[in-house]
Design a protein around this nucleic acid. Sequence first.
DNA 1: ATTTTTAGATACAGGGTTGTATCTAACTTT
DNA 2: AAAGTTAGATACAACCCTGTATCTAAAAAT
Lengths: 200, 200
Amino acid sequence: MAEAAAQTRRRGKDLLDAIYAAAVEEVAAVGAGRLTMDGIARRAATARTTLYRRWSDPVELLLDALRELHPVEAPAIGADDLRGDLVTSLRLMVDWCFSPAGRAVMAILTDPARDPAIVEALYERVFAARGGTFTQTVLRHYAERGHFDPARLTPVVVGIGEALVSQRILDTGAVDDDYLADIVDQAILPAIGIGPPPRR
Amino acid sequence: MAEAAAQTRRRGKDLLDAIYAAAVEEVAAVGAGRLTMDGIARRAATARTTLYRRWSDPVELLLDALRELHPVEAPAIGADDLRGDLVTSLRLMVDWCFSPAGRAVMAILTDPARDPAIVEALYERVFAARGGTFTQTVLRHYAERGHFDPARLTPVVVGIGEALVSQRILDTGAVDDDYLADIVDQAILPAIGIGPPPRR
DNA sequence: ATTTTTAGATACAGGGTTGTATCTAACTTT
DNA sequence: AAAGTTAGATACAACCCTGTATCTAAAAAT
């Protein structure tokens, strides 16, 4: 009564964007197992009917939403600074994990009743553009330029940084830059034969 | 009709054990977010009434169940075999992760809507008896005996093995012994300044 | 200005979960 | 043997989610 109702009706891209945003927020909030058309509709402030016109179930909707979201950024390579680039790439990972898309992907991957087909679709749509994991891009670059022995880049080694970051996020819910530097100095660099870290 | 009905009625400990087992199986199957009195009751082949007589919600029940389950085993220390003991401790972790209790704990920890209070209660009840993580016990033992510099045992380093195992489980759902050996040779040992791993 | 498209609102039956109440019959205790 | 406790079964109203159908009015196209 007091305010003139914003009697506008969303349509086309505006509406889709609102629905996509609602979908990733919803899955991050309640988990993939509890994702529901009703929940997405409420969060997007639209009618369930509108969703059913386009998708037949919430997972289809979610996959479309993730496809539309900005893909994961690839870490940039600096000027001959392996250590700094590794920290930067991990920072990139942490930031992405806390983005709406990242939280949504995490919710899907950690769902106990997750569907392998969904996981695969996820990897294709979200990680396809990037060349491997966050630190992998950096490590390969410097290995090719002779900073260390490329034979050191085993599947285990290229996953050290990501594994430690994931664990830290799961444990404490936040990661500061000092911890990222510790990961690089105390785990990644020793594993590729650089170091040992300064003992002070 | 054909068979005489086993007209026995569970009571006391028998019944409780069946309920506890059902609870951890249920949470591992559907996830913490979807844990329901109804699901537990069905799995335990009892009436929901029986559950409501003792607990007011499924999470309370689950926490009691985890308290009753066997705690995590502590890794044994062998005869001066750091590498072998590390692999063994990681094997212990993997086995525990696939046990009913382990799967239940994982489901709780990875639930997007997890309650910090529940997580804390979990750590107290399940991990309290053990001295730190799986590899930590082993690493401390050998560090104290001079196999390597104890200053290397930072929070990052003692978590390397567990982080890589967790990531592998999440990715592939299984971990073989070769991979565990790779983790030890290519990540943990370099981080404590032992190695480099043999290049063959 | 008229027509077409479609967002938004409402309603509905069907199914699942919740928490409570009630009854019975099996097990324990005395 | 009698009295007690309590597992198991059934029923229930309330609520949420699912698909579908129907109507309206706003936005776009003509």
